[in-house]
Computed example of a mutant assay.
Amino acid sequence: MLMDLIAAERRTLSEVLGNLDAGQWRAPSLCAGWTVSHVVAHLTMPFRISEQEFADAMRRAGGQFTVMSDEVAERDSRLPTASLVAALNDNVHTPWSPPGGGLAGALSHDVIHGLDIARPLGIEYPIPDDALTTVLDLITGTGHTGTDGANPFGFRLDGHCLSATDLDWSAGSGEMVAAPARDLVLLAAGRRLP
């Protein structure tokens, strides 16, 4: 089930990316300091670099994933856009997942970064309701918060009730924040919405 949602997200996002022009690839994304090409380079990193290359990059970055990720995204954002799209399209069924995240983490990674690209470009592509609710459940779930109550993106649900206006999903209690599910995903992922 989750792998089907992942494959659908990657396939649809590949189609969106394949239709972008050069200016759109250089446009800012919702990831601070990253263009669309940086995000796609990051999104496809697990499919393009070996475990040894990953380990070497982590060593160069002093074990700091964010530093390593920025370095690889900066370097690989210069790859031909067609090769980045192909890396995503050729791996629609690849069962990669972030450490400790499982397939739900992989789906969240793909959906959040897809929205990081599409939202500032004014593109809305289809994301199944099941995918959105899976991502929302994961990134707002109490099992995925730190000791300070924040999720890995720094978002705190405390005192708020998030409610999707376009599907049957809500979480938390307190002050109501009602918005389309895509916006709630971005909010809970710590993004500033344009």
Rank of each mutant, 00 (worst) to 15 (best):
H93P: 11
A118P: 12
L103C: 06
P126G: 00
P99E: 02
G122F: 03
H109D: 14
A106W: 11
S97R: 13
G101H: 09
A104I: 01
L103N: 10
G122T: 03
R119N: 11
A131K: 02
I112Q: 11
D90P: 12
I139E: 02
W96F: 15
V92G: 01
I117N: 04
L138E: 08
L103F: 08
G105N: 06
L115R: 06
P120F: 03
G105K: 11
G105M: 05
L136M: 05
D137I: 00
L138G: 00
L132D: 00
T133Y: 00
P99S: 03
A131R: 05
L121K: 07
S97H: 15
G114K: 09
I123K: 02
P126K: 08
G105A: 08
T133D: 02
A106C: 13
P98H: 09
N91V: 10
P99A: 06
W96L: 04
D110M: 12
V135G: 00
A104F: 08
L88A: 03
V135F: 05
D90A: 13
S108Q: 13
H113A: 07
V111R: 08
L107P: 01
A118E: 12
T133H: 00
I123R: 05
A106Y: 05
G105R: 10
N91H: 13
D90V: 02
E124A: 14
N91G: 06
I139C: 00
H113L: 02
L88S: 02
L107A: 08
V111H: 00
D130R: 13
D116V: 12
G100S: 04
E124I: 15
G122A: 04
G100E: 00
R119T: 15
G102S: 04
G100M: 02
I127P: 06
V111Y: 01
P98V: 13
H113T: 12
V111N: 00
S97G: 13
S97Y: 15
D129E: 14
Y125L: 03
W96E: 03
N91T: 12
V111D: 01
D129I: 15
G122N: 05
S97N: 14
P126E: 08
D130L: 13
T133I: 14
